[in-house]
Computed example of a mutant assay.
Amino acid sequence: MRSYTDGHIKIHPLGGILLAIGLSLGGCAQVSVPMGSNNVATPTVLTGSIPSASDVAYSDVDEEDRSIIAGHLDTLGATLADGQAATGVALPWLNSVSGNSGTVTGIDTSVLSATGCLTFRTTANTIAGIKLYDGTACRDITRKFAVTALTVSEA
C-alpha cells in the first residue's frame, strides 16, 4: 500500500528512451558565434558604444597630463588663499615625457570656498591635434587639486 495520495505517475519506457537520446544528441549540436572577420572592407564590430566627449578627453589628455594641470592649479591656489581672483590668469603647462602641452584659462573660483572645486578651460596640444577642454578640479583630503572631470568643449 502507498503512503501518499497524490496519485501515481507512470513514465512510459519509450518516452524515457526518447528523452535520453534527445539529451545525449544535444551535446553534438554546434552553435558558432563569429569572433571576427578577415574582411577589411566591412569588419565585424564586436563591442563598442557611442563615444562621448569625456571618452575623447580621457584618451587625449592622460592621467599624467591631468596631474600636471592640477599641480599648476595648486600653485595658483596659494594666491587664491590670499583672496586674489583668478580672472585673466593663464597657466601654461607642459608634459615633458609625452610632449603634450596647453594653457589653462577661464578659471572660475566662484564656488571654491563652498565646494572646494573650481572650473576651468584648457587647450591641449596632443598627437591628436589641438583641442579645447572644459574641466573641473576639486581639492582632495590633502587639500591638493585633482582634475575630476574633463570634456571636449564646443568652442
Rank of each mutant, 00 (worst) to 15 (best):
M1D: 10
M1T: 09
R2P: 09
R2V: 14
S3E: 07
T5M: 11
T5H: 10
D6V: 11
I9Q: 14
I9K: 12
K10F: 15
H12T: 11
G15N: 11
G15S: 13
G16I: 12
A20T: 04
G22K: 00
L23H: 06
G26I: 11
G26Y: 07
G27C: 09
A29F: 13
A29P: 00
V31N: 05
V33E: 11
P34A: 13
M35A: 13
S37C: 07
S37H: 08
N38E: 15
N38C: 03
A41L: 14
T42R: 10
T44K: 13
T47F: 12
T47H: 04
I50S: 08
I50P: 00
P51S: 14
A53L: 12
D55H: 10
Y58M: 11
S59F: 12
S59P: 02
D60S: 07
V61P: 01
E63K: 14
E64T: 14
D65I: 02
R66F: 00
R66A: 08
R66Q: 10
S67V: 03
H72M: 09
H72I: 04
L73R: 02
D74M: 04
T75K: 14
T79P: 01
D82H: 13
G83K: 08
A85M: 05
A85P: 09
T87N: 15
G88W: 07
L91K: 03
P92N: 08
P92M: 03
S98I: 01
G99S: 01
S101T: 06
S101M: 05
T105Y: 03
T105V: 12
G106N: 14
I107L: 09
D108K: 04
T109D: 13
S110V: 08
T115W: 01
G116H: 05
C117V: 10
T119C: 03
T122N: 05
T122E: 07
T126Y: 05
T126H: 04
I127E: 07
A128D: 15
D134F: 02
D134K: 06
G135W: 02
A137F: 03
R139V: 05
D140C: 08
T142Y: 11
V147W: 04
A149Q: 10
L150V: 02
E154W: 01
E154M: 07
A155R: 15
A155I: 09
